[in-house]
Design a protein around this nucleic acid. Sequence first.
RNA 1: GUGGGCGUAGCUCAGCUGGUAGAGCAUCGCGUUGUGGUCGCGAGGGUCGCGGGUUCAAUCCCCGUCGCUCACCCCA
Length: 447
Amino acid sequence: MARTASLSGYLELLPEERLVELHMLDTLRRVFEAHGFSSIESRAVEPLEVLLGKGEIDKEVYAVSRIHDDDGAAAAAKHALHFDLTVPFARYVVENAGHLAFPFRRYQIQKVWRGERPQAGRFREFTQADIDIVGDGELPFRCDVEIALVMARALEALRIGEFTLRVNSRKLSEGFYRSIGLEDTAAVLRAVDKLEKIGAERVAAELVETAGASETQAEQALALARIRTSEPDVAPRVLDLLGDAAPDDLLRQGLEELTTVMAELTSRVPGRAEADLSIARGLDYYTGTVIETVLHGHEELGSVCSGGRYESLATKGRRSFPGVGLSIGLTRLLSALLDSGEVSASRKVPTAVYVTLREDQDWPAAQDVADQLRERGISAEVALSAEKFGKQIKYADRRGIPYVWFTDEQGRHEVKDIRSGQQTEADPASWSPAAVDLTPQIRFNDR
RNA sequence: GUGGGCGUAGCUCAGCUGGUAGAGCAUCGCGUUGUGGUCGCGAGGGUCGCGGGUUCAAUCCCCGUCGCUCACCCCA
């Protein structure tokens, strides 16, 4: 069970839960680096104006200040904890542009903070795992494809169960709305974004009221949002909805891009992606591909991995840095998987061998045995006092330590497999545990 | 920020119309006196979230407050 500590929204894990998290972090690192992404870490704190510049999340930002400034008065906050990794990354790129080679691909796995009301799957402090590719001036569309592909691979490697990348293109949606004569595309997107939550009728009403749509236009916009298919070529279905209207350039480009992304994903990670033309994304800096990810059986979580293309991640003078990226909500994922029991660790401690003590004075000799094991990569722990063997075995058993080591008066060694009870002679210089017992294993269980 | 629900042992919870607390699990001990798990017996552990009010008497009723939780909002 993932437990909520005394402070709501700040998840703290037990050792056996942390092992699962570490395994996920290791897995992500391996996959990201296999695809050529470099790791960076940015400071936890940004100037307030850097964070508030992006609007949107203003009230969720935690400000940081000393309790008193030098005059002893309460200090006004100039800094704040970052609420995502994209904004700090943009600042980092601008600041270090001279040292980076573009296109720059980086991954970044860090805690972020948001001051919202916590709920199941929503935290005030949580870990995000981001990958982005950022270009100097321009960035090939091909990067959109690659980012989606790497994340699909990463999610597969995490073995979290079935998931679907829901892919759309802002260009497609906006181009479509314009083609049918709806100019306030932002208002349309906001309304359509609520489709799953409030239903078609109320979205249609909102389109008419706030986006200036006629009933026909509202119907067309809704029909577009209802397109959801694993068939890569969505163009015929979209164009069919236009009626007499002609597709504008933006729509044509969006169709081509979405089709390309879908075709590549379908061939390289079959069954992991579908085109979902209702995906809009709340943040307004997305300009092309947008992606959300639903974890099957955990639909209540919402998206566990989201992001997309933004044509202007950052600017420096006349230079602009377009980017494309995706972000995994690692804490959200982890907490759901731990709660459901789908993932667990085979033991609470790294220790593979517990070296018992027959007499208290045997402690140095026991450490020698442990060191011989450790030198060969076997985690070993020595008893702290020569309690009854029953107690020492029990200690190991409670922690899930698979082997217990005994040395008798003559210096003969035996090792006991605590699960079978089998005890055999062993040499500390050469004995090894079964491979699965060497380190805690991560278990993937049925729900 | 707005609204609902809930705060009793380490955990999960019971405690009737008010009479100052109990169970299961966990922990520890003993049986089994230096080779665990089962079983049996026993023990420890509580400001009943906090403050105030009503009452002879409050875990229980009332008010406030803090915390947790769910929903809205927003998002990973």
